[in-house]
Design a protein around this nucleic acid. Structure first.
Length: 855
RNA sequence: GCUCCCGUAGCCCAAUCGGCAGAGGCAGGCGACUUAAACUCGCCGCAGUCUGGGUUCGAAUCCCAGCGGGAGCACCA
C-alpha cells in the first residue's frame, strides 16, 4: 500500500513540520537583533564561549548553547534588550593538520566547516543575533589582534626573551605554561619537552596581584571551583628575599623564602641545576666538581616533566664545593645543585632549612647534611594552633608525652607553630613575630626585604605554525625589533598554496620569501617579518568586545558600545577553560582598562559552567563506540525535545549521562503541551478572573517562582514545574472546568511563554494556535497576581517532641495564640501528651506548632 | 598527601530561612479507549535522606568523625 510521505494527522504533534514552518519566519523577521536604534530597554549581554569550527556540533555544544539560550530568552521576556552573539574561534591547529594530511587549504577547510556547523546551529535555533557573526581568522578580525599586540608592545607588556620553553614535539610548537597539563600538551596529549628558544611573551605576571585580588568580586557569581583553580594557578606566596654572600663571588645571591623565621636553621643552600647561577658556581670549582655537575645537569635535562613532577621520587643533587654565608649568623653553608629547586621560580636558589621543610629534610637525609631545629613546635603559642592544653582547673600545662624534636631521625619536618630556639635574637618569639623581626633586621642591614612570589609565569604567545595571526613585528639587522606601522595593518597571512605547512619546528611563514622579506619601516633596509603566529588564546581574550561593533574598520571595539553592553552579564561555557581562556581574558581586560578603553576590570560578571554529556558513565568517544551523535539525535527527536531533555536532566553544572535521560519522554511532554493549545476554545480576550481558581493558582505560582529558578540556573526545576502546569491543565480540561475555561487559556499561554526558554518551536506554534502572531519570544513576562499566591487555607502541622501528631486546616493569617490554642485542643495531641508536663511550645504560625513534653 | 564538591525511591532528580521527605521524569504495575496493538488518558510511592556521633523544641539541610564517588592541586622554597 502506497503511503503519501506527507500524510500526517493534522491533530498530531510533528516536530519536523513545526521546525520547517517557523525557522524561515524567524530568519525573515530577525527578532533577536540587539541594539536597535531607539531601543530604550535595559540591556543584558549573554555570551556563549564561541566554538572552534570542527565540522559539526556535538552534544556538549547542544547542552551549553541550550543553557545560554535559555538565559538569553529569559531576559528578553523580562523586557531587556539582549545581546546574544555568536562567532567562530576559527584559527588553530586542526585546520592546519587537516591541510597537511589531506592537502586542502586550511582556510577553505575552516570556512567549509563553519558553513556546515552553521546549518546545524540554525536548526537548533539559539536566539543569536547572527548579524554580529565574527571569524577570528578574518583579516578584519586579526587586524585588531595585531593592534592589541602592538599596544602591549608599546607598553612593554609584550616582549621577547630567551629561555627554556615548553615544546610539543607532536605539534612542533611551543606552548604556554597553562597549556601543559600534567606534563602533556593540552591540545594533543603528547608529552611536552623543554627547548631553549627566544619567544614572545605577555607580561601577565605584572597583573598577578590584581588577577588574584579581583577574584574576590567574582565570589558567588563564578563557580567556586574556577575561582579556586585560578587562585592556585596564580599561587601567590608571601615571605622574604634574603641575600647571601658567596665565597669567591662579588655579588650576593638572593633567595626567596616563606619562612624567614627559620633563617638560623639554614644548613645548606640549593641552586637549580639548569640555572645560570649553577653553571657559574660550578665553573668556579675544581675540574672534578665541574665534571660531576655537567653529568648531573645532563641527566636532569633528559628527564621529562612527567618524571620530574612525580612525587616521592628520591632526591638527587651534587655538591658544588662552594659556600654561602648566612647573613644573620655568619655560618658557612655548602651549596648544592639539585633538581627539586626550579630555575624559573623565585631566584632559582633556596636556603635549605631541613628541620622545618620536608623537601629540604629529605635532601639532607639523602646526603647526610646537618639538621638544626630552630622552632620548638612543642612550645605552644597563644592565640594560634596548637591551642594550649588546660588541666581540670583551667591552668595551662605542657603534657609530658610531647613528640620528639628530632626531624633528622623521624624524617618528618616540623612545619607547625611554635617558639623560636637556637636563633639568637629571635629566641622565644612566635613564628609570625619572628618573621616580622627578621625581616626588619635584614632590611635594616640591607640584606633582605619582604617579598612576594607567584607560581604564575608570563604568557608565551608565539607559535611556530601557519594558521594564526602573524606577529606584527619586523626584525631589522640595524634597528632591531620594529613594530609594523598601524597604517600597514593587517599583516595578512600569505597564501597557504605553495607553502610547506608540515611542522618542522619553525614557522612555515619563514619560507614565504615574498612575504617575509620586507623593507624596514624605520631605515628602509632589508629586514624580515617575524614569522611566528599568535597563540589562538590571544584571539579569544577580547572577542567579547568585537561583537559590539564587528564590522567597524576604524577601531577594535567602540568604547561607547562597551559602555552600553559590557562587561558580559552572563558567560556560559566549559570548565576546561577555568584557567586558560578565562585567565587570559581577565588579563587583557585589565590591560585595556589601564589604557583607558574600558571602564571595568572584569570581563565576565557571572559564569556558568555546563557539565559534560556522558554515555554509560564515561566520556563519549568514537573509539569507545559510545558516541551519541548530535545530528542523529536532532533528526530523531527534534530540536525542542533535545533541548528539553538537556535542560531537564539535572542541574546544568552536573554531568548528564545520556543513558539516564529520555528524549522520547521530553517529546511526549511537548506534544502534551502542544495539544492543549489546540484544545483551548475561549478567545484571547477572555476575562482571566472568571477562570478556575485552583488552576490559576498553579499558573501564577509558576510565574512567580520561575524567575528566581532561572536566575539560579535551576532549569530542570522550571521544566518540572511546567510539566506540573501542563498536567494540571490537562486535568482541568478533561475533568474540571473544561476547555473553554479562562484559566485553561491562561495556563496554555503561560506554558507557551515559559516553554519558549527551552522549546522555541513548540512554544511558537502553541502561541499561534492560541490565536497570536509571532513571536512568543518577545512576549513580556506575565505578572503573577499576588492574590493568587496566597493560599485560602494552609495545613498547620502539630508536633509533639518533633513528631507529627496532627494536621489542622487554618487560615494563613491565623495568629500564634489562636494556632497554639487549636493545637492544644487537638484530640491526637491531648492523647499523646497524657499526663506529661509541657516544657515548651514553639509556634510558627501558620505552619507549625511543636509541643515539647517531659519524658 | 593537601583542598573543594557530592551521597535522597530500581534509575535521573526536587525539597527558598533548620519546620509535613516528593514537584517532575524514566522504568514498572493496574485500568480506560481499541477487534488487537501503538498512541492517548487515568490511577498506583513505607526511600525516612551513605554510616556513627553532636547541636536544636525540631536536621536531608548546621557541626565532628568515618565510608563511598567526583574534581582540583601536588617538589613553587
Amino acid at each position: 500500500m502506497a503511503h503519501d510521505q506527507h500524510e500526517v494527522d493534522p491533530g498530531a504533534y510533528d516536530f519536523a513540520s513545526i521546525q520547517a514552518k517557523w525557522l524561515p519566519v524567524w530568519e525573515e523577521s530577525k527578532p533577536f537583533a540587539a541594539g536597535r536604534p531607539g531601543d530604550t530597554k535595559p540591556r543584558k549581554y549573554i555570551l556563549d564561549m564561541f566554538p572552534y569550527p570542527s565540522g559539526d556540533l556535538h552534544m556538549g555544544h547542544a547542552e551549553a548553547f541550550g543553557y545560554g539560550d535559555t538565559v538569553a530568552r529569559y531576559w528578553r521576556h523580562q523586557g531587556f534588550d539582549v545581546l546574544h552573539p555568536i562567532g567562530w574561534d576559527s584559527f588553530g591547529l586542526p585546520a592546519e593538520n587537516a591541510a597537511i594530511k589531506r592537502g586542502v587549504d586550511p582556510r577553505a577547510w575552516t570556512y567549509e566547516n563553519i558553513d556546515q556547523q552553521k546549518r546545524s546551529f540554525r536548526q537548533y535555533a539559539p536566539s543569536f543575533d547572527w548579524s554580529r557573526e565574527l571569524h577570528t581568522s578574518d583579516p578584519e578580525y586579526y587586524r585588531w589582534n595585531q593592534w592589541l599586540f602592538l599596544k602591549l608592545y608599546e607598553k612593554g607588556i609584550a616582549y621577547r626573551k630567551a629561555g627554556q620553553v615548553n615544546w610539543c614535539p607532536n605539534d612542533q610548537t611551543v606552548l604556554a605554561n597553562e597549556q601543559v597539563v600534567d606534563g602533556h600538551c593540552e591540545r594533543c596529549g603528547a608529552v611536552v619537552t623543554k627547548k631553549a628558544l627566544t619567544q614572545w611573551y605577555f607580561r601577565v605576571t605584572d597583573y598577578a596581584d590584581r588577577l588574584l585580588d579581583d577574584l574576590n568580586q567574582l565570589e558567588g557569581a563564578w563557580p567556586s571551583k574556577v575561582i579556586s583553580m585560578q587562585r592556585n594557578w596564580i599561587g601567590r606566596s608571601a615571605g622574604a628575599d634574603v641575600e647571601f654572600e658567596i665565597e669567591g663571588r662579588e655579588e650576593r645571591i638572593p633567595v626567596f623564602t616563606t619562612r624567614p623565621d627559620t633563617l638560623f636553621g639554614a644548613t645548606f643552600m640549593v641552586v637549580a641545576p639548569d640555572s645560570e647561577l649553577a653553571a657559574e658556581l660550578a665553573a668556579g670549582a675544581s675540574d672534578e666538581v665541574k665534571a660531576r655537575f655537567e653529568g648531573y645537569l645532563e641527566s636532569v635535562r633528559t628527564e621529562s616533566d612527567i618524571d620530574r613532577l612525580a612525587t616521592d621520587r628520591p632526591k638527587t643533587g651534587v655538591f658544588l664545593d662552594r659556600h654561602a654565608i648566612n647573613p644573620v649568623n655568619g655560618e658557612r653553608l655548602p651549596i648544592w645543585a639539585a633538581d627539586y629547586v626550579l630555575a624559573d621560580y623565585g631566584h632559582g636558589a633556596i636556603m635549605a632549612v631541613p628541620a622545618h621543610d620536608q623537601r629540604d629534610l629529605d635532601f639532607a637525609r639523602a646526603f647526610d647534611l646537618p639538621v638544626r631545629v630552630v622552632v620548638d613546635t612543642n612550645q605552644p603559642v597563644t592565640g594560634v594552633i596548637p591551642v594550649i592544653p588546660l588541666d581540670e582547673n583551667g591552668v595551662p600545662y605542657l603534657p609530658d608525652d610531647l613528640p620528639p624534636l628530632n626531624p633528622g631521625d623521624t624524617g618528618v619536618a616540623l612545619t607547625g607553630e611554635g617558639r623560636l630556639i637556637n636563633s639568637g635574637p629571635l629566641d622565644g618569639l612566635s613564628k609570625s613575630n619572628a618573621i616580622r623581626r627578621v625581616v626588619d633586621l635584614l632590611e635594616h642591614r640591607g640584606l633582605g626585604r619582604a617579598a612576594k612570589n607567584y607560581r604564575l609565569r608570563d604568557w608565551l604567545i608565539s607559535r611556530q605554525r601557519y594558521w594564526g595571526t602573524p606577529i606584527p613585528i619586523i626584525h631589522c639587522t640595524d634597528c632591531g625589533e620594529v613594530p609594523v606601522p598601524d597604517s600597514e595593518l593587517p599583516v595578512r597571512l600569505p597564501d597557504a598554496a605553495g607553502l610547506d605547512l608540515k611542522p618542522k619546528g619553525s614557522s612555515p611563514l619563514g619560507a614565504a620569501e615574498d612575504w617575509v622579506n620586507v623593507a624596514c619601516p624605520k631605515c628602509g633596509g632589508a629586514a624580515r617579518r617575524d614569522s611566528d603566529t599568535m597563540d589562538t588564546f590571544v584571539d579569544s581574550s577580547w572577542y567579547y568586545l568585537r561583537y559590539l561593533n564587528p564590522t567597524d574598520e576604524g577601531v577594535a571595539f567602540d568604547p561607547a558600545e562597551a559602555e552600553k553592553w559590557a562587561p558580559v552579564d552572563q558567560y556560559v561555557g566549559g570548565v576546561e577553560h577555568a584557567i586558560l581562556h578565562l585567565l587570559y581574558s581577565r588579563f587583557i581586560t585589565k590591560v585595556l582598562f589601564d589604557e583607558g578603553y574600558l571602564s571595568f576590570t572584569e570581563p565576565f560578571t557571572s559564569l556558568l559552567n555546563q557539565g559534560m554529556v556522558l554515555m554509560d558513565g564515561s566520556k563519549m568517544s568514537k573509539s569507545k563506540g559510545n558516541l551519541v551523535e548530535f545530528a542523529s539525535e536532532l533528526q530523531a527527536h527534534g530540536t525542542d525535545a533535545l533541548r528539553v531533555t538537556l535542560a531537564f536532566a539535572g542541574p546544568p553544572e552536573d554531568d548528564i549521562d545520556w543513558a539516564d535521560v529520555s528524549p522520547t519522554g521530553a517529546a511526549k511532554f511537548l506534544a502534551r503541551a502542544w495539544r492543549i493549545a489546540g484544545e483551548v476554545t475561549s478567545s484571547p480576550d477572555v476575562e482571566w478572573k472568571t477562570g478556575d481558581a485552583a488552576l490559576r493558582r498553579i499558573t501564577h505560582r509558576l510565574l512567580a517562582d520561575a524567575p528566581g529558578l532561572v536566575e539560579a540556573f535551576k532549569f530542570n526545576v522550571v521544566v518540572a514545574r511546567l510539566m506540573e502546569l501542563v498536567n494540571a491543565t490537562r486535568k482541568a480540561i478533561d475533568s474540571g472546568a473544561g476547555a473553554g475555561d479562562a484559566a485553561v487559556r491562561e495556563a496554555a499561554e503561560v506554558t507557551a511563554m515559559i516553554l519558549d526558554l527551552f522549546a522555541p518551536y513548540t512554544a511558537e506554534d502553541m502561541w499561534e494556535r492560541l490565536g497570536y502572531q509571532p513571536t512568543v519570544a518577545l512576549v513580556p513576562w506575565r505578572k503573577a497576581d499576588p492574590a493568587l499566591l496566597v493560599e485560602e487555607s494552609v495545613t498547620a502541622i502539630v508536633q509533639v517532641n518533633g513528631k507529627v501528631r496532627d494536621r489542622i486546616e487554618v487560615s494563613p493569617k491565623i495568629s500564634g495564640e489562636e494556632l497554639e490554642a487549636l493545637a492544644r485542643a487537638s484530640a491526637a495531641v491531648v492523647r499523646t501528651i497524657g499526663d506529661s508536663e509541657i516544657v515548651n511550645v514553639i509556634v510558627r504560625a501558620p505552619r507549625l506548632v511543636n509541643i515539647a513534653i517531659k519524658g
